[in-house]
Amino acid sequence: MTLEIVLVVAGALFSIGLFGVLARRNIIAVIMSLELMFNGVLVAAIGFSRFTAPAALVGVDGAITESAVRSALTGHMFAVFVISIAAAETALALALVFAFFRAKQSVEITDATDMKN
């Protein structure tokens, strides 16, 4: 298990999500593919956090300060914030889907043409 393998798995998730976002016509399916892309990015962030140590911890021997350990968790903090924002984004996106369905009686992404031209 190396950083490269983790990045390949993250890239595979991201690419599958990208295909879904471009190929699907149902808006809910597009949102599901977006979640896959989020997860791909997060796996990459956690992978970097796991296989690297920040500069604050290099060359320290014996006792290391607590703030240095906390700065080693930047990748984890990134994941916490992205997960929270993804949850907010999904709630808002599904509200928009409901509003769109109420206006158009459709969830096809090709029907969202009100602002075209």
Binding site: G11, A12, F14, S15, F19, L22, A23, R24, R25
Partner: peptide, 22 residues
């Protein structure tokens, strides 16, 4: 719900290119 858009080939190529570059 399962209908794929007409740009299916473009989507597949984009995904494969993205994975290859990563």
């Amino acid at each position: 719900a399962g209908t794929l858009s007409q740009s299916r080939l473009v989507s597949a190529v984009s995904g494969v290119l993205m994975l290859a570059s990563i």
